[in-house]
Design a binder for these strands. Sequence first.
DNA 1: TTCTGTGAAAACCTTCACAGCT
DNA 2: AGCTGTGAAGGTTTTCACAGAA
Lengths: 216, 216
Amino acid sequence: MQTSFMKESLATPVIPKKTVYRLSIYQRCLQRLIENDVSTVSSESLAGVAGVKPTQLRKDLAHFGQFGTRGLGYNVKTLVEMIRDALGRNRLQPVVLVGAGNLGSALLRYSGFQKEGFEILAAFDIAAKRGEPRVDGVPIIPQHEMSEFVNEHDVRMAILAVPMNAAQGVVDQLVAAGVQAILNFSPTVVDVPDDVMVKNVDLAVELENLSYFVRN
Amino acid sequence: MQTSFMKESLATPVIPKKTVYRLSIYQRCLQRLIENDVSTVSSESLAGVAGVKPTQLRKDLAHFGQFGTRGLGYNVKTLVEMIRDALGRNRLQPVVLVGAGNLGSALLRYSGFQKEGFEILAAFDIAAKRGEPRVDGVPIIPQHEMSEFVNEHDVRMAILAVPMNAAQGVVDQLVAAGVQAILNFSPTVVDVPDDVMVKNVDLAVELENLSYFVRN
DNA sequence: TTCTGTGAAAACCTTCACAGCT
DNA sequence: AGCTGTGAAGGTTTTCACAGAA
């Protein structure tokens, strides 16, 4: 009873996780349409490039209201704005990266994050010394300064690329310092409170999983 | 009718994709148990470290037969072997990497793949020249030699880390050369025939998606 | 008693079919 | 005519509840 009420509270109209995920994909596709000066798009063609069925796209959008024009399609700009709002973020979300090793440094140099409105404020590494040279403008800071930094800069998101056995410890610190969402590249499942979201990207698991689908 | 028959053909007893995915995770957890000389594990504790519910773990395993001992749990070694068999692979699956840029090079140096039984035979890059120095023992080869190499070495899996606008072209070549599974780090959805499996890992999309779950 | 294996129920997600705008 | 919006149907995955083996 109470649960059902909470689920339907106006603040969060229960958007399925999978829908939220696809929204990010639609967003990326729409941005490319904008670059190509396309101003209107049908559910069929947008779904096509996003790799989903048109009905699914429409159902996904329906969670947020009515944005299309029947007989015509969707206005690209309107859609982009609506998804931006739906995903929250008045943009430029601050992020920290932990673990500036092999993979971590590559992620630091990866320009895709900035382009999508995230700013990596700093990278932390256990082996970093004061005065470490910046990588692509991002300072590399000794890890023991992490908690304070996260607190002070109101950082809510972190990218984790530390070795397996360090992961849980770092996560605990991050959570204690106020981080609410973690993109975890460390090859281990970490424990967090219910109100913290973790997305695991375990490269070896992904490959292993894929290998199931190759025929001999 | 026919579809239903095909679905139940003995060769493939219809394992849900999500189950297959979790199998890889269980495998990783079990390996750690072996390192710690744990010989028996209950569905509850294995599920705990894998981040799933015990019933789900049992349902997943049930697809392949009965492996547990009631009142006791599962034999770790037996389980590892059963999962290895289930995931197929007599191990050491050959893989190629395409795109030895920023992210690609980091992936090349990532040791997790080898450890899980994959061998990166070669990396291809459009800018590579003959006689390029090896990275971690893996040769970097000009991209125009890719198709031939894939064909000759019977490569069935590829890791893709090329820029967005190059992705589809490379995928088409890979598929034509016989690749059946692609781990795609390029920030775009690619088109493939039904019998080719693609797993997209779009870093920016993952972050964007996560940001939905941070509260202000 | 403890813990697995499993039908049945519940929850969740996708697709269909078509009504309703433009 | 063309394309969106949506209730209802269909499918899949997860969870429950408990029977049954060690």
